[in-house]
Design a binder for these strands. Structure first.
Lengths: 241, 241
DNA sequence: CGGGACTTTGATCCTTATCAACTTATGTGG
DNA sequence: CCACATAAGTTGATAAGGATCAAAGTCCCG
């Protein structure tokens, strides 16, 4: 604690795929080394639960690879997905008592997991990290509020169009080493139709019908259940408003 | 900046109604005095806009008295209210470029306003404040996500019931000087039917019909357009799930 | 007391949920 | 490697909840 000089061994964080995009981005090597002592990597297979809604021993995680969902349930058991976690996103509820939502891997994933207590303590001692976390939380709040607009005011067609566009964007990192990457309009849906319905506040049938319609109208292609190509982005954007 | 001792004059913050509940709660007198130099009080009359969606010169505010709404619009002009601000709530988007939503007073209000730049600078230098802000933002994110469940998965009856209950709770501070206060089940709606509709993702007619139904069934009383009494909280809670 | 905004109520229509049957993928064991 | 079982997805028919359109009623304020 009081040592002024400190042997800084490179932590495995240094080679982390999201080193420069996650909340750890502003930490120096020493801090990173310290952080890496309280975190551990974990592999998740599709469908595996990272933590459950209501858990007391709360986990926090950086998504390194893959896509996760966070969700809650109505008392009648209907699920509502609250958001998706993509690489470099931070998942979980710091400074809380119980997890207000559950987290599950949608695809095979890698995450960097922390016990909440460890992380909370670390964050309070490193205001740069806390600041990053604040910025992320504010951004996430913005995104969640935009989603409210979708849930409250859009019809099924607009919802599905918006969702496809957002997925395409978040699934493809905008830059790679500061070089603009030409992005393909083909991508893999990381969710089942049911899960899409649970995100959009629709039923599985409505989602399916809407996708079929978009395909029939030439706006998208469905190569397989999970493979989507956006053929007419302009029109989709018009529909999504 | 480098002075170690400093004349601390009591700022008007010391007597602020929300001194112990707002994000300023953890600041000491010296910090509070400093903060008060960059903030100013402002009175708003019902219907007055504090700032607009898309504004570049962004304002931030602590709500001292009254109720504000934050909202955004679809491209077709339909409004979606994103949330309400009650006394001690913090409004606005720190560390951002443009306001992602507008804020308007629903009732005559008092707020404590900051220029975003001033506030951002202050926050970065006072990690206790930034920590408070983080906790609030996380709590607000939780609340917003619960609202997603309402928008995505509830029917009109459940939405209106939930809203009445939440309004009653937030309109009445739970404690006063650490003493549990017996709360009355009568309260004033700070919104028009149209605004309620814009919060719940419904139309004005549906909201009105639902309220009439609740009244007919003896769950609530409507003394005037704005005066509501909750007569059967249990059943309302049951409906709201 | 009169005018305008807000609200309530009724009638009808439309979107999406629900129910049901069928089709297509996925995967496992013989 | 195929046949079968199971899960996931599609499509159609019908129903219901809310939106929309329309008109009457109420409150509020000058």
């Amino acid at each position: 604690m009081t040592a002024t000089t400190q042997e800084v061994r490179p932590s495995y964080c240094d080679s982390c795929a999201i080193r420069n995009r996650a909340i750890c981005a502003d930490l120096d090597s020493a801090e990173l080394a310290q952080l890496s002592t309280i975190g551990r990597r974990r592999k998740l297979t599709a469908g595996e639960q990272l933590f459950w809604e209501g858990d007391d021993t709360v986990l926090l995680a950086n998504v390194i690879e893959g896509v996760l969902k966070i969700s809650t349930h109505t008392s009648e058991g209907k699920e509502q997905i609250l958001g998706l976690g993509f690489p470099s996103d931070f998942l979980g509820r710091p400074f809380g008592q119980t997890a207000p939502f559950g987290a599950e891997a949608l695809t095979d994933s890698f995450v960097c997991v922390f016990e909440q207590g460890d992380f909370d303590r670390f964050a309070r001692e490193h205001s740069r990290l806390e600041h990053k976390l604040l910025e992320r939380t504010l951004a996430e709040l913005d995104r969640t509020r935009r989603w409210m607009l979708l849930l409250g005011r859009m019809n099924a067609e607009q919802k599905v169009a918006s969702f496809l566009l957002e997925l395409r964007d978040r699934l493809t990192p905008r830059t790679c080493n500061h070089i603009e990457v030409e992005v393909s309009e083909i991508f893999e849906l990381p969710l089942t139709r049911q899960q899409m319905a649970d995100i959009l506040g629709l039923t599985i049938e409505t989602v399916s019908r809407q996708l079929s319609r978009f395909k029939r109208d030439g706006l998208i292609d469905l190569l397989s259940r999970r493979q989507v190509t956006i053929r007419d982005r302009r029109t989709l954007e018009l529909i999504a408003s």
